[in-house]
Structures are given as C-alpha cells and as structure tokens.
C-alpha cells in the first residue's frame, strides 16, 4: 500500500522522531511511505481560535497537498489533527463560501486515518511485538487524548497496540478520560484553568508510578510533559508511535532526566 504521511506541524517542527517512527512502523509492515511536500498544518489552531478567514488558506493548502491519486490512504500520528481534517475542513470551506474546496476536503478527509486506526482497522495489526518487533521494557501509563477519544472514537486502539508491545508494563491511569487542559490557545487564554487541569493530570500520572506517559497527540504530550518538567518530575511523555518503533536491537532510550515527548534524548 502507498501511504501518504501527514506529519502535522507540531511533529514536523518539534517532534520529528514521532514522524520518523511512523515511517519506520509502516515500512516494517512492507508499505511505501510518501511525504507530500506541500503539507503544513491542518489549521485547527486557527479554527478553534475563531479565525475562520485565516484558516481558509491553511485548509486549502492541506487539501491541495493531499488531493491526489498518488497514494492509497493518508495517515497522521495525531487524533486531533485527523479529526480536524475529517470534521473541520468542510465546515471552514462552507463558512468561507468555497463549495469546490468543501467537496475536495470531503474526499481528502475520507482517505485520512489516525495512526492507530490505520494500523488496527486497515493494516490488521493485532500484536505489535509479533508484527512490528516492538520491544519496550518500561513501565508506562497512557492518556487518551480527547479528540481521538470523542471525535474519532478510537476507543482502545492505541492502548491495545501499546499493551501488545514486548516487555512493556502498562499501568492504568486514573481518570484517564479527563482532558489534560491543553485545548490549543485555551492553554494561554485561560491559563489558570488549563494549569489546574494539567496539575490534576500530572498528579494522576505520578500516582501510577510509571516512568512515562504515552499518548497519541504530540500537543497534549507537550502540555502534560511541560507541566511535569516544571514540577521537576522524572516522568516524561512519549508518543505511542515511538514505543511501537522501538525494538530490542534499536531501543528508544528513555534514560536520563525529564523527557518531553522525546525531545531530550
């Protein structure tokens, strides 16, 4: 299968390892990965901040980059960005009176998958250890991000993939379904409420005794990890793609001090 990678802007700029891990997993399964070079961002920061007019050109750019027959399916290592592509793009086009873009956005949205969706529903991965050689001998807890959980209905797809990694010890996160408080510009506009939500998330994570908190959205992991780092905690955050990509021969290192979604290694 020919798979187009939508890296997402935050992974592209801040967490390239997450995208590299995504490529590694897909290639290990024997698929060809392409990277449409025109891609930039899904535009949800603009949309969720109310800047629909500015979102229009961002959405148009994404649709132009991915509206080709050059690939079978598109994938992104983010529930939130995929939800934006699937649910917001048509809305933005409609609001800006761009019917042609609306139609093309629907086509692109239908072909776009979140990583765990693609691995589970399309590529039939049931055991990461057996099919991907995933090996990660660490104690890990998992935060399901809101948009993956509620907009994409990913259910336990990410968690089940993590549980099937060799040598991993998964511990349950209390109140896992509670938002970490990121919410894009919410974290700055309503910084106090956002910080209070993050503090509770951090306390729950630390209470599990896990070395790491994994998840499927780099933005939420940056938020949670940033809070843990500020508190001086040793607990880091790591995208599940990087854990799936980790093998006995080429392990992802989590030693050392705080890791913010893998940035410090």
């Amino acid at each position: 299968m020919k798979i187009a990678l939508f890296a997402t802007c935050i992974v592209d700029a801040m967490y390239p390892r997450t995208a590299q891990a995504t490529v590694a997993i897909l290639e290990r399964l024997g698929h060809k990965v392409v990277f449409p070079s025109g891609q930039a961002c899904c535009g949800q920061m603009h949309v969720n901040s109310g800047y629909f007019k500015e979102a229009h050109s961002v959405v148009a750019n994404h649709v132009a980059a991915f509206d080709t027959d050059d690939y079978d399916v598109a994938v992104a290592p983010s529930g939130s960005c995929v939800a934006s592509v699937k649910h917001q793009h048509e809305l933005v086009a409609r609001r800006c009176g761009d019917a042609a873009l609306e139609a093309r956005a629907a086509v692109v949205g239908a072909k776009t998958y979140e990583l765990s969706q693609l691995l589970t529903d399309v590529l039939g991965v049931t055991s990461a250890a057996e099919q991907l050689g995933s090996y990660f001998p660490h104690k890990v807890t998992y935060h399901p991000s809101c948009h993956g959980m509620r907009l994409l209905r990913l259910e336990d797809k990410q968690l089940n993939l993590l549980k099937s990694v060799g040598a991993i010890e998964m511990v349950e996160l209390p109140e896992a379904d509670q938002c970490c408080g990121f919410g894009g510009t919410f974290s700055m506009k309503n910084a106090d409420v956002s910080s209070a939500m993050n503090a509770d998330k951090a306390a729950n994570i630390c209470g599990t005794g896990a070395e790491l908190c994994s998840g499927g959205d780099a933005s939420c992991l940056m938020h949670i990890g940033g809070g843990l780092s500020r508190q001086g905690s040793d607990v880091g955050t790591l995208h599940f793609a990087e854990i799936l990509a980790s093998t006995l021969e080429n392990p992802v290192s989590v030693s050392g001090a705080v890791t913010l979604a893998g940035s410090k290694r």
Binding site: A13, Y15, A191, A199, G226, S229, K264
Partner: peptide
C-alpha cells in the same frame, strides 16, 4: 500564559 506552569522542550536541530 503557557510558561506560567509549563516548560517548552528545546526544539530539535532539524525538522522532520
């Protein structure tokens, strides 16, 4: 607003 309670990691040397 962000840095009142959260650090930001050092960015990588190159983008994906």
């Amino acid at each position: 607003g962000w840095t009142q309670s959260r650090d930001i990691p050092a960015p990588p040397t190159q983008s994906f």
